[in-house]
């Protein structure tokens, strides 16, 4: 089973990479989101797929019985939350970039490059 999941995780990673290489910044954001998903799956696989039992201690017992490794789950939760925050921030940035430049293509957004550019004739406008 891990083979299938590993294949899927690697595949999703590849799709994410492909999207991140786009010149459209929204695709980049979606690609990063897809990458986050893929990496979460990688983390999950690190704990090995072996059981379907969630790591909850049953009433009456004091220890955890046979179950999935709980540690990767905690890590993934943290990673999901952080990835969520990043995705939304990036979306806000993309929105601002569109408002400022009128385009969503990364090769047409060049305010940072023109600021203080040694190859430009004069001083760049920094609005």
């Amino acid at each position: 089973m891990s083979v299938v999941y590993a294949f899927v995780a690697a595949g999703l990673f590849g799709c994410g990479v492909y999207m991140v290489l786009s010149r459209h910044i929204v695709r980049v954001i979606l690609g990063l989101s897809l990458l986050t998903t893929a990496v979460n799956l990688v983390l999950f696989l690190a704990g090995r797929i072996r059981s379907a039992q969630p790591p909850l201690i049953r009433e009456g017992s004091e220890r955890l019985g046979e179950s999935v490794d709980p540690v990767p789950q905690a890590l993934i939760l943290t990673a999901i939350v952080i990835g969520f925050a990043l995705t939304v921030i990036l979306a806000a940035l993309a929105l601002r970039a569109y408002r400022a430049h009128g385009t969503l293509r990364s090769d047409e957004i060049n305010a940072a490059q023109t600021l203080g550019d040694p190859f430009a004739p004069g001083e760049a406008d920094d609005r």
Binding site: T37, V68, Q73
Partner: peptide, 20 residues
């Protein structure tokens, strides 16, 4: 992308990670 994410959520569910 959302679909991919949801499927991963299902995978978590089926492999003992309901919280996740």
């Amino acid at each position: 992308t959302g679909l991919a994410g949801l499927v991963v959520a299902l995978t978590f569910m089926m492999n003992g990670a309901p919280d996740l």
